[in-house]
Amino acid sequence: MLKIGVLAMQGDFREHALMLRQVGAEPVEVRTPEDLNQLAGIIMPGGESTAISRVAKATGLFEPLREFCTTYPAWGTCAGAILLAREIEGEAPHLGLMDIRVARNAFGRQIDSFVAPLNIKGLIGAPLEAVFIRAPIIASAGQGVDVLATLEDGRIVAARQGHLLATSFHPELTPDTRLHEYFLDMVRGARLVV
């Protein structure tokens, strides 16, 4: 069974772990550098990006995590996407690995959070009910980045660059497992290449 890490600093990492189990992977909560051993990929959950990053730095996980994500498939949802971004509007980047520029809290405060149906490139079937909670957007994406989904107004909310995946919404909060299956396919593909 594929072992997939879920960064467990802060946020809704348990929901991701439950989803991974549902799609037939073995989730591993990642709190220390040793936890990264023998993982085939990692998910960075929703939460507060500042909190997640501060905790990872304080325990020496930050650099090993960055190293891991340079070669292994990594998926960031909401706060996780902010961690992956090369640029963050108005603040310094965290991992800085994916060629996207993100804007935090792009829709406003909690009162502006919403659910919207989303067509996502690579997913078959009905639109995915995407949950946006104090969500960021991908303000711009570099040349090598494949845009997977936009809102009606054209704003980018899902993108992929090779082995890196970023979504500004929370697929872990709804029963729809298609994006987790998509990520598992990415992980399997990466293994074939390696």
Binding site: Q10, G11, V115
Partner: peptide, 22 residues
């Protein structure tokens, strides 16, 4: 965006999910 009652509950409870472990 217009959120129905079920969506509103999901969004309200969802923000608390993001605070977990914090």
């Amino acid at each position: 965006h217009v959120n129905g009652n079920e969506d509103k509950t999901l969004l309200k409870r969802g923000l608390a999910q993001m605070l977990k472990g914090g």
